[in-house]
Design a protein around this nucleic acid. Structure first.
Lengths: 153, 153
DNA sequence: CTTGTGCGTCTCTTAAGGGAACTTACGACG
DNA sequence: CGTCGTAAGTTCCCTTAAGAGACGCACAAG
């Protein structure tokens, strides 16, 4: 079967998928983000098998997205926390939340809300341009080849 | 094997993953986004197996992310294009690109660049608050339960 | 009437996931 | 002292589905 590895493609999307593209990984990240960082809690809250959880956690730690730290010496106990690299991945999660809220909303409405410290209001994320700060989406850009080219027909 | 379905979880991330969480789906979307919309072109440019490509395309069409449209009557020829729902998924891709550029950049630098029509400059996406328009990330928000609750310890 | 192209389906192998039992290391309890 | 409980995995087996690559089919052109 030999699943194709995305890690060495000349594409940032593929390389990002290589890190968190496996099933469960984004959900693990979500839980760590909200403070569920211990093995058993993750396993129970997700309903994931312990085997897969072990694999995913190891991969995420090896890829510097999570760090495993000991919070008790005796008995030895560990928990997982976001690194800086992992924290920035949360941007991705927030955009997923936004899309999921808009397009897969059940009758019940969004399961979580964000209160923005800067303004104190309940808001959601929007994409803006890093240069001019105005909204930016795929219909308002040209896609140009960069230094490390990609995408062939 | 019985892979756990994410579609009916009370979590927008899980539901989003249910739509585009399978391996290859985001890359298919990326290619359709840049204008590669025909079966063979997708297959060749991705190196994906034809079977998997068929499955993914059907899933994405069924989920209203792509539409399959006939561009030739005889012989019957089809291409795939983004729906509105799919176009909004591109936000997700752009955020993935941003993270991949920052954290998995090879020596070569980013494979693609975005020129923002509104300002004419090369920029990248940033997350801003929909209410106050200022930058917003996971460290600057409180996460509150919404109408459709989620995440248990 | 054979070749080429576009778009898929079919078959076969392999590995990934679920689930449960086992392990280690400790603290507490009676 | 024996054993119960808990945290954090590890190891095993078994099923199933996912993936690669071959094959099929419709049509057009030469």
């Amino acid at each position: 079967m030999q699943r194709t590895r995305f890690g060495d493609m000349a594409c940032s999307i593929a390389r990002t998928l290589d890190v968190i593209g496996e099933p469960w990984s984004p959900l693990i990240l979500r839980n760590v983000m909200v403070g569920i960082g211990r093995f058993d809690h993750l396993q129970q809250s997700l309903g994931i098998s312990r085997k897969v959880l072990t694999e995913r956690l190891r991969w995420l730690v090896d890829n510097d997205v999570l760090e495993r730290r000991q919070y008790s010496e005796r008995p030895p106990r560990y928990e997982y926390a976001l690194t800086v690299k992992g924290t920035e991945l949360c941007d991705l999660l927030m955009v997923m939340v936004r899309w999921g809220d808009r397009w897969t909303a059940g009758e019940a409405g969004p399961p979580v809300l964000y209160r923005h410290h800067a303004c104190g209001e309940i808001g959601h994320v929007e994409l803006h341009c890093s240069v001019c700060d105005r909204p930016m989406d795929v219909t308002g850009i040209d896609i140009l080849p960069g230094p490390g080219a990609a995408i062939t027909t």
